[in-house]
Design a binder for these strands. Structure first.
Lengths: 246, 246
DNA sequence: TGTCCGACTTGATCCTGATCAATGTGATGT
DNA sequence: ACATCACATTGATCAGGATCAAGTCGGACA
């Protein structure tokens, strides 16, 4: 998944988003980026963009989580992207978002005015290269997600999501994925359902099932303890060798 | 979907794959690409690459259709990509395919040796830009596909697939999508099922259903006639305004 | 001409997850 | 302390697709 490390040195006041687009920033580039950037913050549940909205910026997630969703007329919705700190919003050469972008948790993004950002991209090829790399990573995770949506059972879907969230949390805080780990679900049951292509009732039932089976413990609605991560991963249906293909 | 037009002028002996990676080829670039390329052909059903295989090339589809699939241990598989002429196979900076690549129809691809191709990419930024554009297009269609897998009924899935294949056929031969159009399904029922996250029996039943409803006509197993494309599209569940977001 | 085989169709039944409905829980504010 | 509200759980029932099991069709080949 090639995420940017959560590390503030080298990049001054706005580290994450700079390094998200550029891992070899020189000071001229930093200065350029600084001059075209501004921040926006949203509360959990707020909409950042509606599908079809004009976008005058591209942006990078600084703090919190955002989702991309596609909707159908009758109200059915499917989440198609989950954006974490350092992930990129928007697309060079596109003026409108084809997706709803929603703040899942409280969210801060760093926006870059589109026109100058695109000009800068033309002048600094390694920014384009970095974007290509990030986009290919996103494509890979979209394809993994397609397998989940098309072929996994509700049970496997939930186990997969918990594994993803747990692993992500472990990486974020630079812990090795550990048995006995505790973390807070950043998603409501409804958001989990949208992610997994299920109803929120099914999500709730499956969570209760995993709890009864002793695979997870729940404290309140959001706090999850995973006593034995291998046991959870055994429920995902995934290949266990897990060797990342480079 | 930003596909390359099926047009041979300007690009000599190997037009499609060159223009797939480069819409502004100059002769030095063409010469360079020529020197590192070779062709491979496969029969329908043959495997091009197994997941995990070492890849010494990147490639571009010249003729025919290939699929990317993910498998699970127990044999369940999900198609995650359908590659048409001009589509790109492989990823700069990656040595093994994470997917099974299979020739859906008879297939010819044009391979470029990976090392020199990557070196060339570094020297010619518009190739990287073109790859970024293509990758973003693929990401968009993957996300559309996720909505289909997660939220559409079997009925809507089939209608969507037929619409996609019909539209694609119409574009390929530069016909305006037309009522009364006839085309051959390039996919077996099983491949359709893998594409849609269904079983082949369900695919078959839904096809029969559409036929009984008079929305499509079937001659033999593969030849499809669509008397009224709007009527088919009404079954997809999709937004009808269809304005491509640029 | 027959038979063989793979691709497809159709039928009967089962089961997972959706739907509809009621209830529970905890945080917030008054 | 209580009302309120959003979020979550649980139950009862239903239905869309999966599964298991025969059959059909059409082309290749002896």
């Amino acid at each position: 998944m090639n995420k940017i490390a959560f590390d503030t040195k080298n990049c001054g006041t706005c580290p994450i988003q700079h390094r998200a687009v550029c891992s070899h920033c020189d000071s001229a580039e930093l200065q350029m980026l600084d001059s075209i950037k501004y921040y926006r913050s949203y509360e959990a549940g707020q909409s950042v963009l509606w599908a079809g909205d004009h976008m005058e910026f591209v942006a990078s997630v600084v703090l919190g989580i955002a989702s991309l969703s596609q909707g159908m007329e009758d109200g059915r919705t499917q989440m198609v992207g989950l954006l974490l700190p350092s992930d990129f919003i928007g697309r060079p050469g596109r003026n409108a978002s084809p997706y709803d972008v929603v703040a899942v948790t409280d969210l801060t993004i760093c926006c870059f005015r589109k026109k100058p950002f695109e000009e800068m991209m033309l002048k600094t090829p390694h920014i384009a290269a970095r974007l290509l790399e990030m986009t290919l990573d996103e494509l890979d995770s979209a394809r993994e997600w397609m397998l989940l949506l098309g072929r996994k059972t509700a049970h496997e879907k939930i186990a997969s999501l918990l594994t993803i969230l747990a692993t992500r949390d472990a990486n974020l805080y630079k812990k090795i994925p550990l048995d006995g780990m505790v973390f807070d679900l950043p998603l409501t049951r409804e958001a989990m359902a949208d992610y997994l292509g299920l109803t929120l009732e099914t999500v709730s039932r499956q969570m209760s099932g995993l709890k009864k089976a002793g695979i997870i413990q729940l404290e309140g609605k959001r706090r999850v303890t995973i006593p034995d991560i291998a046991r959870l991963m055994a429920e995902t249906g995934d290949d266990m060798d897990g060797g990342m293909l480079v």
